[in-house]
Amino acid sequence: MEIIKGIPLNYYIFLSTALFCIGALGVMIRRNAIIMFMCIELMLNAVNLLMVAFSRYLGDSNGQVFVFFIMAVAAAEVAVGLAILIMVYRNANTSDTEVLNQLKW
């Protein structure tokens, strides 16, 4: 198809970099644990996008299979993570990471 000629692979690298850095920024800047979770999803998706782009540009389908597995792991991670978050909220009555600093010393 024309995409390989139309769009350089570097564009996808920079797009993924930007998305990843926005995700990292969100983890650093927000206090709500759920939003931090969502920013982690954003970072995972940036990596997925880069993997699909490389897989397409190199004609190797293994990258897309790995993206599929990453999605499976992300779904499992979100289910367990949100369950933990609900339990923490039930005990501490907050999802604010500045309050949930009991493990710090």
Binding site: I4, K5, L9, Y57, L58, G59
Partner: peptide, 21 residues
């Protein structure tokens, strides 16, 4: 990251099969 990737030469196979997806 941008500075690291800017000069990177990425190998691209122009005849890559589009039907792998």
């Amino acid at each position: 990251l941008v500075a690291a990737f800017k000069g990177a030469e990425v190998k691209v196979i122009a005849s890559a099969d589009a039907s792998i997806g």
